[in-house]
Computed example of a mutant assay.
Amino acid sequence: MPLTREQKSDQVAWMQGVLNDNEVVVVMRNHGMTVAEVSDLRARMREAGGGVKVVKNRLAKIALKDAPGGEVADLFTGPTVIAYSEDPVTAPKVIVKYAKENEKLEILGGRMGDQAMDAKGIDTLSEMPSREEIIASIVGQLMAPASNLINAVTAPASNIASILKTLEERENA
């Protein structure tokens, strides 16, 4: 059943919203994935905080027209799927992992911010730490000096206490 003009304009507007609201968009080619496989991919992406959608190439190209990083419009040929996430690492991590498990999914490239990327760029992006991992690392580094200071301040008191205990034990012996 063909789409009406209104449905087509809604899909173009949705795609423009995805491009504006998400830090990364990964473009993939679907080589005969089953409905169950696509559902599994969607569930994994949703769990990670992103989304997956099969898109109409012509409508995606219209949405990308005059958009920064619009060079990715050339990737929209054949059965195309996009994955997107606000975190620049989430979608690439999930997609690269899934593509290794399922050869029916081919990563073509994507867009991070205003910059177009090829498949190798998406693969490299997937190896970077996520936002949560970076925050945990920073918190750990911030807490380390405080922990060291507490240990340094309390160490002399515990040393004195152990010396006094040893002297008391000698007197009692």
Rank of each mutant, 00 (worst) to 15 (best):
7 Q>V: 07
7 Q>H: 14
9 S>W: 06
10 D>P: 00
11 Q>T: 07
11 Q>N: 12
14 W>G: 09
15 M>T: 00
16 Q>P: 10
17 G>K: 04
17 G>N: 07
18 V>N: 08
19 L>D: 14
20 N>Q: 15
20 N>D: 15
20 N>A: 13
21 D>E: 02
23 E>S: 15
23 E>F: 08
24 V>D: 03
26 V>G: 00
27 V>P: 01
30 N>G: 07
30 N>I: 12
30 N>A: 13
31 H>D: 00
33 M>H: 05
33 M>C: 10
34 T>L: 02
35 V>M: 12
37 E>I: 10
42 R>A: 12
42 R>S: 09
45 M>W: 07
45 M>R: 11
46 R>W: 13
47 E>W: 00
50 G>E: 02
51 G>H: 12
53 K>N: 15
53 K>F: 13
54 V>W: 05
56 K>N: 13
56 K>M: 06
56 K>V: 02
56 K>R: 15
56 K>G: 08
57 N>V: 07
59 L>N: 13
60 A>I: 05
61 K>F: 02
61 K>D: 09
62 I>V: 00
62 I>Y: 01
63 A>Q: 10
65 K>T: 04
66 D>I: 03
66 D>H: 04
67 A>H: 15
67 A>N: 15
68 P>N: 06
69 G>S: 13
69 G>N: 11
69 G>W: 12
70 G>N: 11
71 E>I: 03
71 E>K: 03
71 E>T: 01
71 E>N: 01
71 E>L: 00
72 V>D: 05
72 V>E: 06
72 V>K: 01
74 D>T: 14
76 F>K: 02
76 F>S: 01
78 G>N: 12
78 G>V: 13
79 P>T: 05
79 P>N: 03
79 P>Y: 02
81 V>H: 01
82 I>C: 06
82 I>A: 04
82 I>V: 04
82 I>Q: 00
83 A>V: 02
83 A>G: 06
85 S>N: 09
88 P>I: 06
89 V>R: 13
90 T>Q: 08
92 P>S: 03
93 K>M: 11
93 K>Q: 15
96 V>P: 14
96 V>W: 13
96 V>K: 15
98 Y>L: 13
100 K>L: 01
102 N>D: 11
102 N>A: 08
103 E>I: 00
105 L>K: 05
106 E>W: 06
106 E>C: 09
109 G>D: 00
110 G>H: 08
111 R>F: 08
111 R>L: 14
114 D>E: 15
116 A>K: 01
117 M>A: 02
118 D>P: 02
118 D>T: 02
118 D>E: 05
119 A>H: 07
121 G>R: 05
121 G>D: 07
121 G>I: 04
123 D>W: 10
123 D>N: 12
123 D>I: 14
125 L>P: 10
125 L>F: 09
126 S>T: 04
126 S>Q: 09
127 E>P: 00
128 M>Y: 13
129 P>T: 03
